[in-house]
């Protein structure tokens, strides 16, 4: 039992570290702000989730595990708010995303007339 838990937390911690590294690599490679947001969301969901899950398996059924789950829930609740605020602020500041396909027809939600400026 102990052995199985150890192996599982090894797997989860390694996977979490790997996802964090992938996200960091993506943050360096992606061409513009909006695509970098996607790289960061890999870190904040999968990387964070795997590492916390690995730690919970090591902590067992204790107060420490409860605190870890609170941390995971808080990050999952706050990360999209920060990401959305960042994307919205970047759009309002006039930074337009580099697009391959624009299916909005130049129309952004909340604006009356199409703006292509």
């Amino acid at each position: 039992m102990e052995m199985v838990l150890d192996i599982l937390s090894w797997i989860f911690l390694l996977a979490g570290g790997a996802f964090c590294l992938i996200g960091g690599l993506g943050l360096l490679r992606m061409p513009d702000v909006y695509t970098r947001l996607h790289a960061v969301s890999v870190i904040e969901t999968l990387g964070m989730g795997c590492i916390i899950l690995g730690l919970v398996l090591q902590a067992g059924f204790t107060l420490v595990a409860a605190k870890l789950i609170i941390i995971a829930a808080l990050i999952l609740l706050t990360a999209p708010v920060a990401t959305h605020a960042l994307a919205q602020a970047a759009l309002h500041a006039g930074i337009l995303p580099k697009l391959d396909h624009d299916k909005t027809g130049g129309h952004i939600a909340g604006e009356d007339e199409p703006s292509n400026s």
């Binding site: 150890d6 937390s9 090894w10 911690l13 390694l14 979490g16 570290g17 790997a18 964090c20 590294l21 996200g23 960091g24 870190i43 990387g47 590492i51 690995g54 730690l55």
Partner: peptide, 14 residues
């Protein structure tokens, strides 16, 4: 195992 994960996270921070 914690040390390995910590090093991965620190490299990501860099």
């Amino acid at each position: 195992m914690f040390a390995v994960a910590t090093i991965a996270v620190l490299i990501t921070i860099a």
